[in-house]
Design a protein around this nucleic acid. Structure first.
Length: 770
DNA sequence: TAACACTTGTTTTTT
DNA sequence: ACAAGTGTTA
């Protein structure tokens, strides 16, 4: 341990060793925050505190997994595993499951994700016969979510004049009714949405002092990472748990608070000390990550914000290159410039592709970079977009699981009662639903005793319903014996999903089939790894409770891959790269048009930009485009105000930084011709493709391999003419490669299996011949 | 009831 | 441009 402490600087060490009271660690970007947290936990363990007395809360699953493995390196796997470490949502869902009865739930409650919530809200809006133009599910859900994050119950909501005024002003005065119904429906379905996990934890602690006492005693030391991103509900949970002993350490950086849209309240960190007057504050100000230039540029940027904790982040690394600011003529050219620069840097120095990251404000920007990179044969990996578990076919299967585990789950019921199609349509479901509402029971209950609830359907429909009922009942019975994987297999087979998926030979169908397969493997892996860790034979309910809190951020992490990383700035938080490109620095994009009107919003955008720049270790390049194709139109753009927020001493700008005056939108047709005629030179000149070619390149761009690239699951280097060996289909020649949304697919003539289309994301094969 | 064409909103970020 | 939701037709 001594040696361990020696590797820390003075402040870090002091922060690690201070364990007797509340502490606030203000951790500037790149200042070794995670290091302090992990060492601190190791230190606590070393002092003799048992691991299960330590509660460590993180913001993402990924962060907690990483920290866990780093702690395991320090103190051994065995002890690390017994820590209570995870996201707020996962830790408290675990606690809620074991205390479920206290708050009137069953421990197998379902967790709704955002789209589940939106669906339910849509349904309620319909039932209330409200205008769905005004009451858009996502908007209403946002409002409800905000209320929940502030621990405002439906009753409080309905009694709060200020909120009601606000709703009336936005011409949606009946949100309070929707909220109440929504909450009742969730409860009736033994379900919680994400926010409920925090709300009910608070209620649990508030109404059950004995339970609170138990966890207070258990969690002798509490650590919270990314404290600047906590919302009121989270803050209060921590406060309640820490109130007795005050042994709580929160770590964060107010300058990196970027989640207020989700209810994060920067005041939590700004006012931590007033909650605990005896708080010790540690400021980690030395940045070990970036060059001086990057740190200085970032500092000059963040200085423009008003609300913040004073700190002086500095770097003792080399001075480094200035931040290059490049203006592109169009979004298309922006992609080319970045791809070219990556290629050039690869030649001149020798960085691995994994050292590069392209960071953007919105996911929609990724595509243009994908295309540019693909043209240059640069391998890349995209994070974000729709997650595996959001795909329809996956959600459908999961819904089977949900209904098996929790028969009150109305949403799941609706989803699968006619999937695969078994002739039970909207009318029938409507009948079941109104009968269920009339009698105050679940849909499943009505289905199980149709006569008792006066369900009137014709005999044909009745037969179909019985069929579905028996099918599900069998699953429910089997669930007692079989483990998650065995049952999942059974469900896929017997429900007819397997048949439907594998019979469908369209490319979409094949991809669906592969997704189903992928899900089964995931479940298998889940059961296997848990088995290895010595846990019981896992049931479907265990898988479900884990999977509902999983996001695409967590699925495939092979970060040291030889691939350029493309992601939003939000998902880049906490990461670092040698060479970072921050792209799309234009007004109304970054800062987003949504945020620019309010001071707070604008400052948050600025912090977001700060986060982006400080991801870079060696070089940072910023680009913007004078025109951009968005929502089916090409628009002229003005350069972002953030560019002039930075001290130019740390920048190297091509052209001038004062934005041009052209801000009027330009019609697409006009712009297309411009595109063809104009050749912009930034060292790299190019001839814009004709409209036709451009469209083609989207659909049918062929990918060539660079031989040094290791063949991964995604088979980045696959190109036409190669011979591959496929797991199921054997040998075949690649005849073409196409893009299909975010998926690439290859057309292959197999020697024995004939012509097939493979989704490269999932296909398992080797390249045998060039 | 299912398949299909049509209309509409969407694009800020995610546990 | 695109996906998702809605309404219309077979």
């Amino acid at each position: 341990m001594e040696k361990l402490l020696d590797s820390l600087n003075d402040v870090q060490r002091a922060a690690v060793q201070f364990c007797d009271g509340p502490s606030l660690v203000i951790a500037g970007a790149g200042s070794g925050k995670t290091r302090v947290l992990t060492y601190k936990i190791a230190y606590l363990l070393e002092q003799g505190l048992p691991p299960y007395y330590i509660l460590a809360l993180t913001f993402t699953n990924k962060a907690s997994r990483e920290m866990k493995s780093r702690i395991a390196e320090l103190v051994g796997e065995k002890r690390a595993r017994r820590l209570w470490m995870g996201t707020f949502h996962s830790i408290f869902s675990r606690i809620l499951r074991s205390e479920a009865e206290a708050i009137g739930f069953q421990s197998n409650f379902t967790i709704f994700d955002t789209s589940d919530s939106n669906n339910l809200i849509r349904l309620i809006i319909k039932e209330l016969k409200l205008d769905d133009k005004l009451y858009r599910p996502a908007g209403v859900h946002g409002q409800i979510s905000r209320a929940k994050n502030s621990l405002i119950t439906p009753k409080m909501y309905a009694a709060n004049a200020e909120i009601l005024d606000y709703d009336r002003m936005s011409r949606r005065p009946r949100i309070f009714e929707i909220y109440e119904r929504y909450q009742n429906r969730l409860r009736a379905a033994n379900s919680m949405d994400f926010d409920d996990l925090l709300v009910y934890t608070n209620i649990l602690f508030r109404d059950h002092p004995d339970v609170l006492e138990k966890y207070r005693n258990q969690f002798q030391y509490i650590l919270v990472d990314e404290y600047q991103d906590t919302n009121f509900a989270q803050h209060l949970i921590v406060k309640q748990l820490a109130d007795a002993h005050h042994r709580v350490c929160v770590v964060g950086d107010d300058a990196q608070s970027i989640y207020s849209f989700r209810g994060a309240n920067i005041d939590n960190i700004l006012k931590f000390k007033s909650n605990y007057p005896e708080t010790q504050i540690f400021k980690l100000e030395q940045n070990y990550r970036s060059t001086q230039n990057i740190v200085n540029a970032a500092n000059s940027l963040i200085k423009k914000n008003t609300e913040q904790i004073a700190k002086d982040v500095f770097s003792e690394n080399e001075e480094g290159e200035k931040i290059e600011v490049i203006q592109a003529f169009s979004d298309f050219e922006e992609g080319l410039i970045v791809a070219n620069k990556i290629a050039r840097m690869r030649l001149e120095q020798h960085p691995s592709y994994g050292d590069f990251a392209i960071l953007y404000r919105t996911n929609a920007q990724s595509r243009i970079f994908e295309e540019a990179l693909r043209k240059k044969n640069i391998p890349y990996r995209i994070y974000g977009g729709l997650s595996f578990y959001q795909r329809k076919e996956i959600k459908d299967i999961i819904s089977y699981f949900r209904l098996i585990v929790n028969r009150s789950d109305e949403d799941a019921f609706r989803r699968i009662v006619n999937y695969p199609a078994r002739g039970i349509g909207d009318v029938t479901v409507g009948k079941i639903s109104s009968s269920a509402q009339l009698h105050g029971v679940s849909l499943w209950k009505v289905l199980s005793e149709p006569l008792a609830y006066n369900l009137e359907v014709n005999s044909g429909t009745a037969k179909k319903l019985t069929g579905f009922y028996e099918l599900m009942s069998r699953f429910m019975e089997q669930n007692e014996q079989l483990n998650a994987y065995e049952l999942a297999q059974l469900v896929v087979k017997e429900s007819g999903i397997a048949k439907e998926a594998y019979d469908d030979m369209t490319p979409e169908g094949m991809s669906r089939a592969q997704n189903v397969q992928e899900l089964l493997s995931a479940i298998n892996e889940f059961v296997d790894t848990r088995l290895e860790e010595g846990e019981e034979n896992l049931k479907l309910v265990d898988f479900l409770s884990e999977v509902s809190l999983l996001t695409d951020q967590d699925t495939d992490q092979g970060s040291d891959d030889e691939k350029v990383t493309l992601m939003t700035i939000h998902s880049a938080k906490g990461l670092e790269f040698e060479h970072v490109f921050v792209v799309g620095l234009e007004e109304d994009l970054f800062p987003s048009s949504m945020a620019k009107n309010e001071m707070r919003g604008l400052e948050e955008e600025r912090r977001l930009f700060y986060v982006a720049v400080t991801r870079a270790k060696k070089t940072c390049t910023i680009t913007w485009a004078k025109s951009r194709f968005r929502n089916g139109q090409t628009n002229m753009c003005r350069q972002s105000r953030f560019l002039t927020d930075m001290d130019e001493r740390f920048l190297s700008v091509d052209g001038n930084l004062e934005a041009g005056s052209d801000s009027s939108p330009v019609a697409g047709g006009f712009w297309e011709t411009m595109r063809q005629e104009r050749v912009q030179s930034n060292g790299a000149s190019y001839t814009p493709p004709s409209r036709r070619e451009y469209a083609d390149s989207k659909k049918r761009s062929s990918v060539q391999s660079s031989s040094s690239m290791p063949l991964s699951k995604e088979a980045v280097g696959l190109r036409e003419g190669q011979v591959i060996e496929h797991e199921r289909f054997g040998r075949g020649v690649v005849t073409a490669i196409e893009m299909d949304g975010s998926n690439r697919r290859a057309f292959v003539d197999f020697e024995s299996a004939g012509r097939k289309q493979l989704l490269l994301k999932f296909a398992k094969f080797k390249i045998v011949e060039e």
